[in-house]
Amino acid sequence: MGHNKHILRLLGVLGAVVVLFVVVRTMVVPKDFGKTGHFRFGAIEEEKAKTARFQGADACKDCHAEAFKTWTEGKHKHHIQCENCHGPRLWHVRQMNGEPDATPPKAYWNATGIVECKRCHVKTFERAPQVKSIESVQAHVTEMGGTFSPTTKCTDCHNQHSLEVK
């Protein structure tokens, strides 16, 4: 019997390790882990909880009825949303409400009246032919009989919402 002592001791240590593993595991692994797969089930709801920032052109028409009407009558309807040039509505509404952290982290839109237009309408070899393209702003202005200067903008001649020539 005396020879079995060290085996018993070893078993004791092994048992303690197993118990410790089980205890730590139950503490560390979230309760909803593995509910419908090898992941934390609650993560789905967390992902859903984020607020949508882009809300579509219809959300803008209550406050900006006139611009909305011009846009609806123009060629950009169904193509360019308000938010493509003006930025996500959510930030805009928050700014209007005077919320402190409402400033967009980085503006990819400034509604400059020329930069946004050029992204689609200056000729690029690979571009599909369905979009009207110009060689350059200077060439287009000259062709149309205008005077080009470095500060010339597309909105100098075109209405920014209906695209009609002023």
């Binding site: 949508a52 920032r53 493509n84 990819y108 992204r119 689609c120 690029t124 599909a128 369905q130």
Partner: peptide
């Protein structure tokens, strides 16, 4: 891909929506 005109509106929208 036949319709894409390479304006990058999708990229800018995605960046703004998802930080």
């Amino acid at each position: 891909t036949m319709k894409c005109i390479g304006c990058g509106s999708c990229v800018r929208a995605d960046k703004a929506e998802n930080d």
